[in-house]
């Protein structure tokens, strides 16, 4: 039995982190403070000089939207996760201008173009096309992790099943071991968090296990060079545990672990922030929103995992309706459908 409030918590937590972080993305923490007058703890319309310019307060970006469409289509498929369903959802999402055209990251974009057969013309002169490099190190980005927490709900709390799901879904856009290590870490942590007896310690341990498994399984797709997600997670957890307060943890995680679009920065930062926030959903999300750089993606993942751990009650009550309205999405309906699938009410 998986508690409904955990399912809904994962969805609302992820959407909250994405929408709140859309306003702070790409800025350094110092710039966030200068622009907003301190840490951002509510929904703002994004400034004109950031990716989400033109969005309204509370609108999500690529992070949660791709997760939402994927989870929606898996639910429609009675909760069965297949490559075909995930691919169809991905292509459906890529047709939604407000989410894909404006926000899709470099790796996701490149691999969707490949699926659609619209990859850049290799005959056009471009030195990068002169050969096929052995390593696509630039593809070890965080887009595999950003979308996986809601999708991992279909594991029903089974960590190994969540890892399998993450590989199936995320390998479509990020077929390399570093991105998949990040994805499996988030998926495993989410699955663990869904269980009634879950606590922060278990969630973090599940995340480390997921990173190890993801790196092992991901190497079958592509072995690339780059820092280890697992090693950097350990560093981040240590920073989160030893910082004297949340403020120091955010600064130290940003400067030492990093918070960029690289999977081996963003995903470790997620775990460091969760530990520093002592597992509190909103404190963790605020940490992500204000760490600087790829804030929305980090806050999305923190919100997804901690929302599942603490349930939807750990988020402001108004967020659900507000986010549904601003984004024209149905989080409650999706949560109910997942609940039916997981708890045999279908």
């Amino acid at each position: 039995m998986i508690a409904y409030n955990k399912i809904l918590g994962c969805l609302v937590g992820g959407a909250t982190g994405d929408a709140m972080g859309a306003a702070t993305e790409i800025r350094s923490r110092k710039q966030i403070h200068e622009f907003f007058g301190g840490d951002v703890k509510k929904f703002y319309a994004p400034p004109k000089d950031t990716y989400a310019r033109g969005s309204k307060a509370g609108q999500i970006t690529d992070d949660f939207s791709v997760a939402y469409v994927t989870a929606r289509r898996i639910a429609d498929n009675k909760g069965v996760v297949t490559k075909a369903v995930a691919k169809k959802a991905l292509l459906e999402w890529s047709e939604v201008d407000k989410w894909f055209s404006r926000f899709a990251g470099p790796t996701t974009r490149a691999n969707i173009a490949k699926m659609k057969g619209t990859a850049p013309d290799v005959n056009k002169f471009d030195p990068a096309n002169l050969f096929t490099p052995v390593n696509m190190n630039a593809q070890s980005s965080n887009g595999a992790g950003m979308k996986i927490a809601p999708v991992a709900l279909f594991s029903g709390g089974d960590v190994d099943k969540a890892i399998k799901i993450a590989i199936t879904v995320a390998s479509l856009t990020h077929p390399n071991q570093i991105a998949l290590a990040g994805s499996c870490a988030v998926a495993a942590a989410t699955a663990c968090a869904m269980n009634d007896d879950a606590d922060l310690f278990k969630v973090v341990q599940a995340g480390l296990y997921g990173a190890r498994e993801g790196e092992r399984l991901g190497a079958k797709y592509h072995e690339n060079a780059g820092a280890s997600v697992e090693e950097r997670m350990k560093l981040a957890i240590w920073v989160g545990l030893t910082a004297k307060d949340m403020d120091e943890a955010i600064d130290k995680l940003g400067s030492l672990v990093g918070s960029s679009l690289a999977a081996n920065e963003a995903i470790p930062a997620v775990f460091g922030l969760m530990v520093a926030a002592k597992g509190d959903t909103m404190q963790g999300i605020y940490g992500g929103v204000n760490i600087g750089d790829d804030t929305d993606t980090i806050a999305t993942m923190v919100g997804g995992i901690l929302g599942a751990l603490n349930g939807v009650e750990s988020l402001p009550a108004k967020n659900l309706k507000f986010l549904e309205k601003q984004n024209d999405i149905e989080l409650e309906k999706l949560a109910k459908d997942i609940d039916k699938i997981l708890n045999g009410k279908a």
């Binding site: 060079a225 820092a227 280890s228």
Partner: peptide, 15 residues
């Protein structure tokens, strides 16, 4: 192993 795994050895200036 430690340098590549933890500090990183990529194209970024901070690695």
């Amino acid at each position: 192993k430690e340098m590549a795994g933890l500090v990183g050895t990529g194209l970024n200036a901070n690695e």
